[in-house]
Design a protein around this nucleic acid. Structure first.
Lengths: 178, 178
DNA sequence: CCGCTCATGTAACTGGTTACATGATTTA
DNA sequence: TAAATCATGTAACCAGTTACATGAGCGG
């Protein structure tokens, strides 16, 4: 089972009973762009999870649409817990993937001016992202969503690490020149 | 064009002239597990890049195999630079994806004991990864690979941020209890 | 000469995305 | 009542993985 399948299980567990549409929104509104929450991904996936008896569903009463409300079965919760508990994926699979870092590997191909510009743009975008995230995270904390808050903190620390790293990159490149 | 295609362009630019096989190894040996560097990905991709005149290739002299040595064309280098220069992807696409953070979002489904165990395992794996990375990065610095070194520093800072975050998670969960 | 590494390749599959389509319900 | 949102779905596509196959070159 893929990480997306497990994450969907998790989202439904947090919000149950909820529709597949609500799951889509949860992914669409997520600050990371890793999963789009596209209809073509979510609806077939949710159906698969129900066929495997990890989810069960019921029609929303007094709704003439095909709307279905999903909940986790006991097996579904067990599967979610197995995914969350040790053993975790190996260290490489645990390391996060940074699209900025991927690019910097090849910055030798850039002029000093272009590097400078790239650093400044990345800093600006990351700072804006950090501000958005902070607002969002405060809301979660106020709403009593402890784990949502912690995840927000993790994202913030991660962006700060990126910013600190960018400063290091800037300083070092200034020293070594073109 | 995908990030992998651009990254392949970058790897070849750094090592040219080099074989597609060498590109595969570069991805396989990378500390992140994001791209496997599988044959089924790399060989067709490199051929595509050559058809688009971003790469050119020649047979290795005195080698009766089908070995081909690739270089970037002027267009290939221009394409690489365009990818590296601003505008960068939007902030969400610039944020890194952390498989650990994804899981913690759902830790409410875990008992206090299991959370504790998960934290400890993650810490252990991240510390080991950090040690491996440090050794590797020292080597790059010694070899005069300035950008390789900086990327290693970025990865190290990122792992340290993860570890700092895990400490925060541990402390906070200890306070709020089950 | 045997086994390992170098080197290329393909077929079947998987796990998504994009784009489109439909219709019920709610809100201005 | 029109527009926006809720809600589900599918077809075509795409990028990348797994697994397999082939063969040259090289070191012990």
């Amino acid at each position: 089972m893929s990480d997306l399948e497990h994450a969907v299980l998790g989202v439904i567990w947090l919000r149950q009973p909820c529709t597949a549409y609500a799951v889509r929104q949860a992914f669409e509104q997520s600050p990371t762009a890793h999963w789009s929450g596209s209809a073509g991904a979510i609806y077939p996936l949710v159906r698969r999870l129900e066929q495997r008896r990890l989810l069960r569903s019921a029609a929303r009463r007094g709704d003439k649409r095909a709307t279905r409300l999903y909940r986790l079965t006991r097996r579904g919760l067990a599967e979610l817990q197995t995914w969350l508990r040790p053993p975790l994926p190996d260290a490489p699979g645990l390391m996060n993937v940074d699209p900025l870092r991927v690019r910097v590997r090849f910055w030798r191909a850039l002029s000093a001016r272009d590097r400078q510009a790239a650093i400044e743009e990345a800093q600006a975008k990351l700072r804006r992202q950090l501000a958005r995230l902070a607002a969002r995270t405060r809301g979660l904390r106020a709403a009593g969503d402890e784990f949502g808050y912690l995840v927000g903190r993790g994202a913030a620390l991660s962006i700060r690490a990126q910013l600190a790293w960018l400063r290091e990159v800037r300083d070092r490149l200034a020293v070594i020149g073109p």
